[in-house]
Design a protein around this nucleic acid. Structure first.
Lengths: 396, 396
DNA sequence: CTGAAAGCGCTTACAG
DNA sequence: CTGAAAGCGCTTACAG
């Protein structure tokens, strides 16, 4: 059916062994032979058979990426970054969706194992299941975002630092009754973010009452349920921190339906940024994770791991993007952030082109230059990665 | 290294052939033998080697899904649906991201070809490239959403119908100066949606001036550029239709920055729904596609195609979700849609549980019952699939 | 630089 | 019901 190496060899008048070498840039072959074989391969439309190849070499040049929820933009951004970094390293990524379900996770893990991926990138959910442990033991693995106690390197953001900054900011704004819609305590990020908030709060002499702590599951519905609970309290919080964007969306949904004025009646802040947060009125203050760097570092770490080298697991700094959802004062309705200079005048990757730079539409591929952000929010923190929004603008 | 069938056979005291049969539910083996072999496989942690298996059988039980942009929620929802349907059919999905780049698309197509996927699901971009044609010729393929003239079945929404309904609605609202941020005219959806709008407009005796037509590329930046252009016109449009959610987001971003009041100064509507549209104030009126059905049908079609059967390519109805971004009047700020009955009282899948149904958080998996939607917007059209929002709520 | 040969792990007619 | 054998397509020591 499909064209085999044998066919190519026959057409080129050489042995399959020579054809194989001629097609392998790292093998030795006479330049002349190389040309002939390549031509034959081209002519016949030879694609190769990766099953045969990997059966022989026990390598697949494929890495598996196990995600808890493909519909969560944070993971999608991560997948994007991983895919990009992997492609640059000549690896293909197989994305698996656990659908926030341990069963589905195990199922996918098994497929990946069968497929002999060279390595595994996992954002584990729940504890370390038996299947997870088994597969991890058999494959070079790096964990991203979450630490499930697998004994593998973990590439993650410095959640604690980010949450600390956020709490400082909220307290500085004068809020005292602060609630958190936490992530599932079965995840390290869920635990870590909650812990960091509680600790920093107590450093400010503020307690975290049990009625102000609701555990969600990082998905939309749990944010809705949590907001209903918090907003129904006889003394509702002044500010709500949501441990991810989806739960924040749930909270926002309830606020809107109940006519609660965001930033006035109750403030809200979230972990993870999305372009949507900037379009809301008021725009939502967030602790942004650097998904691009997370993805790059994870791939690099896995490659190191496969090569048997040490990996760098320094946490990646987050970035506090201050907008107006916590009642931050603003000089003008459509104006700039009152707290910092607009990005137009900031050093760095933006502000090169005029705000009205048109989109070049040939071939459906935009080559738009970066556009100045009039209301980007102020940035606090060490990192200098571009905002989600400017990134979208730049890469779009 | 890894456990092979041979190891299992040895441990079970049978031949590899028998071991293979014992592990295959469809092969014949003595019940006793079956048990022993299964036990041995279990004990040794036998996973199988899919490379060897597919080399032998020339099947991989894998299907490839080629997406133009993993960061576009529409495609992500589609991927989710495809993955789910494929899993139910015992297939694993390899997701490839073309990153809106024909080069990346070709690269991925080649990997998929090498990996001997059983079939291909593609959302093509640009024209039918040589590589695309080649790979499509060599593999059972079904196109989703877009028709690139590949001569393969296309599973898509009835865009034209949806756009027609939307235009009727906009015109009924009294708008006459109507602009469109169209998708790239290199895609069938881009062309189709534009054409449907123009045609229906002209049926209402309304022309589509060239200054009111901007071509985007389905990505965020092009929506920003388009809005800058449209809003800078001496006579700006009364209503803007964006051909997808990302471009709508771009338009909304510019509106917000310029202080343009949505639905009052200028109305906006989009194709594709996302939970974010409902949280915006005013919530955005959309033509929603049924990604769940799109995914299911596509997988079914591919399976049929692989089996050599005929496939059903009836377009899937879209659904007009009327909210308030076009200046639809509303009786109360947080209230129900004025145009129809609230979903609470509508027949169908919603309204079973009390609005405050709590989230069950054991194991990080929410089991929340559907929550009544107070502001779901009225639904027009034939289809009865659940809204994006209620879906999230239900599945969350 | 090139060819003949072995073998990766599996499945499946072919006998029995 | 079971085993011995062949072979899927490729790569790579081993000779030459």
């Amino acid at each position: 059916m499909a064209v085999t190496l044998r066919d190519v060899a026959l057409a080129a008048g050489v042995s399959p062994a020579t054809a194989s070498r001629a097609l392998d840039p790292d093998a030795s072959a006479a330049p002349r032979t190389r040309d002939i074989v390549r031509q034959a391969a081209e002519d016949l439309g030879y694609a190769g058979n990766s099953a045969a190849r990997s059966l022989r070499t026990s390598r697949t040049d494929t890495i598996g990426l196990l995600l808890p929820d493909v519909r969560n933009a944070f993971f999608t951004d991560l997948a994007y970054a991983v895919d990009k970094a992997a492609a640059e390293a000549g690896r293909t990524v197989m994305i698996g969706n656990a659908d926030e379900d341990c069963h589905a996770q195990d199922r996918y893990l098994n497929t990946l194992a069968k497929h002999q991926v060279d390595g595994l990138l996992v954002v584990p959910q729940g504890g370390a299941s038996v299947t997870l442990r088994k597969v991890v033991a058999a494959n070079p693995t790096v964990s991203i975002d979450r630490d499930a106690g697998l004994g593998v390197p973990v590439i993650a953001s410095d959640s604690a630092g980010g949450m600390g900054e956020l709490v400082d900011h909220i307290v500085a704004l004068g809020h005292r009754r602060i609630a958190i819609v936490a992530g599932p305590q079965s995840t390290s990020t869920g635990r870590e973010r909650l812990r960091a908030v509680a600790v920093r709060l107590s450093q400010h002499g503020i307690g975290l009452g049990s009625e102000y702590l609701v555990e969600g599951d990082f998905q939309l519905a749990s944010g809705i349920a949590a907001a209903q609970q918090l907003l129904g309290l006889s003394t509702p919080p002044e500010a709500i921190i949501a441990a991810d964007a989806l739960m924040a969306l749930g909270v926002l949904t309830v606020m809107r339906r109940r006519g609660v004025r965001i930033g006035e009646d109750v403030g809200i802040a979230a972990v993870d940024d999305t372009p949507w947060f900037e379009v809301l009125d008021p725009a939502v203050t967030v602790v942004a994770q650097d998904t691009a760097q997370l993805g790059e570092k994870a791939v690099a770490a896995l490659l190191d791991r496969i090569a048997g080298e040490d990996v760098d697991t320094t946490p990646i700094p987050t970035r506090l993007v201050i907008r107006r959802s916590l009642g931050e004062t603003a000089p003008s309705p459509s104006g700039e952030s009152p707290l910092g200079s607009p990005i137009d005048s900031a050093p760095g990757s933006l502000g090169e082109s005029p705000p009205d730079a048109p989109t070049d539409q040939r071939n459906g591929r935009a080559t738009t230059q970066p556009i100045r952000l009039r209301n980007p929010g102020r940035t606090v923190g060490e990192s200098t990665f571009t905002t989600h929004n400017s990134e979208e603008t730049t890469h779009g």
